[in-house]
Amino acid sequence: MYDMETRRSTLALLAQGRSLSSVSRRTGVSRAAIRAWRTRVEPVPRMARDCPRGPADTAAYAYLLGLYLGDGCISAHSRGGHYLRIACADAWPGLIQLCRAAIVAVRPGVSVAVVRKQGCVMVSGYDRHWPCLFPQHGPGRKHDRAIVLAGWQREIVGAHPWELVRGLVHSDGCRTVNWTTRTVGGVTRRYEYPRYFFTNKSADILRLFTDTLDGLGVAWTRANAKNISVARRASVALMDARIGPKH
């Protein structure tokens, strides 16, 4: 962990008008860390100190982390504690149940409420530890601030990478079937092929998704600034075996 003097001196170089890359090369500090310091210069408290119990189920936590980064938020209660809220579309009742189960698995004993909104439901659970379980919580929208995993979160994702990918796809992704036509021997035939898309405005969350796919051997392409596509047959088969369509 970098000390405060290193953090402040690095930001001072940035304030001189130097580029992020040049400051990173000069100090040896990663670009991701410098971006995070621009939002919060103070170190994020260690999990062991702020939340000694941690997530009860690390696989469920990796999945819930994906849901939170895609469609979740944390809000303070007026009398203390916080609500974790995950937006789930009405069209996917199975996803609503998976979300409820993940919250209970991560924090046993938490009561989970389902509040219906127009076109979706908010699955929410009250607990005093959500901010330390999800240190990415902060003011404003996620794509307007740095999203960097804490060391203990990286360890959990490293142990359960498919669960993180599943949570991200279930929140901000989809499985679609595209089609095309080919003329063979004078006969026009229709061919269908499935693919996965993941859509997010945050460059950091997109990078987390693609870095995890790289580690799993899943080939992907960038369709545009906020869309990642998985279309190769072998990679789609891997995704189907571990994720599949929403239900």
Rank of each mutant, 00 (worst) to 15 (best):
G80D: 14
S75H: 07
A89T: 03
S111H: 14
V112F: 07
Y68F: 14
M47K: 06
E42P: 08
V29M: 01
K117A: 12
A91S: 13
A62M: 04
V110M: 14
G66Y: 07
R128A: 11
R79I: 00
W92A: 12
S78A: 15
A32C: 03
R53S: 03
A87Y: 02
R49Y: 12
D71Q: 10
L67N: 03
A102T: 04
V114G: 05
L98D: 12
I96M: 06
C132M: 09
A48N: 06
D71R: 13
M122H: 14
R26G: 00
A32G: 02
A87L: 04
A113V: 07
A36L: 08
R26P: 01
W130P: 11
F134C: 15
P45Y: 02
R49M: 07
C99T: 14
P52W: 04
A56L: 06
A102I: 09
W37L: 12
Q118G: 06
A62Y: 00
V106I: 00
C132A: 15
S124Y: 08
P93N: 13
V110Y: 00
A76N: 06
H77I: 14
S30Q: 03
A60L: 06
V123P: 01
R85N: 10
Y68Q: 01
V44G: 05
P43S: 06
L69V: 01
G66Q: 01
R116H: 13
S24V: 01
A59F: 05
L133C: 13
V44A: 11
A32S: 13
I74G: 05
R49V: 15
R107Y: 00
V123T: 05
L95M: 07
A102H: 04
L69E: 03
R26L: 14
P135S: 12
R25I: 05
P135E: 12
R107I: 14
Y63M: 02
